[in-house]
């Protein structure tokens, strides 16, 4: 009978989509465990190891991530138009990925990792499977949350120029975020948090400045982008 027939079809469809989801989740779990490796390596940055040394290991993992996102894009690409149906399955992990890539990028170049650059690093440029803009922005907020801790530990280790650099970077980033019209949602809350990160970094800068520890007390000009900040 047609009723049973239709529900048979539905069940088949939904089960197929369930299977797809499981394949997605398997890849996402690998992404997640890769981000943990990166995180664990990056933690050493707080223990005053030299930046290039610290970055060596996690940078090697970017290729792994790229490969994983490639697989993910392949799986999701089988069903055109369904990106946002399964979006929730990789959302959180991708935000973390962006925050880590952003942090590494900043450590290396002193500049913000742009959305297009993030897509490039993950090998998504030109694919239908793109990096969602809101995920990118949330990831950048997460990255900002790491900076106060970084600054505190760098100063403890004797790098007194760090606060100024981070402060200028965060000030610009904060100003850029203010261009956005955020709804009252998750992203807005994360952005509110960035304000506190900025304030904390400014306080450290002030501590350093007032004690005459700042490397180059008379200059607050933006330095040319060099390697390690």
């Amino acid at each position: 009978p047609p009723l049973e027939k239709q529900f048979e079809d539905f069940r088949a469809q939904l089960e197929e989509s369930g299977t797809l989801r499981e394949r997605i989740r398997a890849v996402v779990m690998e992404i997640e465990s890769t981000t943990r490796l990166i995180q664990a390596s990056l933690l050493l940055v707080h223990q005053s190891r030299s930046t290039p040394e610290v970055l060596e290991k996690p940078k090697a993992q970017i290729a792994v991530l790229k490969e994983l996102y490639n697989r993910l894009a392949g799986i999701v690409g089988e069903s055109p138009g369904l990106y946002y149906r399964y979006h929730g399955d990789w959302r959180t992990e991708t935000q973390t990925v962006v925050s880590l890539l952003g942090f590494m990028h900043w450590l290396e170049t002193g500049a913000l990792l742009l959305h297009t650059e993030a897509e490039e690093k993950l090998g998504l440029s030109g694919l239908e499977f793109a990096l969602d803009v809101e995920d990118y922005l949330v990831g950048i907020c997460f990255m900002s949350n790491e900076l106060p801790r970084y600054v505190v530990n760098q100063v403890t280790a004797g790098d007194y120029d760090c606060p100024r650099k981070v402060m200028m970077f965060l000030t610009d980033l904060h100003a850029a975020f203010r261009l956005l019209n955020l709804r009252n949602d998750f992203l807005r809350k994360k952005f509110d948090g960035m304000k506190y990160d900025l304030r904390r970094v400014e306080e450290v800068y002030y501590d350093v400045k007032i004690r005459g520890l700042a490397a180059n007390g008379d200059s607050v000009e933006r330095p040319a982008a060099q390697g390690q900040p």
Partner: peptide, 8 residues
């Protein structure tokens, strides 16, 4: 950065 955020 500003250009990019204007796009976003």
């Amino acid at each position: 950065m500003k250009d990019a955020f204007t796009k976003y």
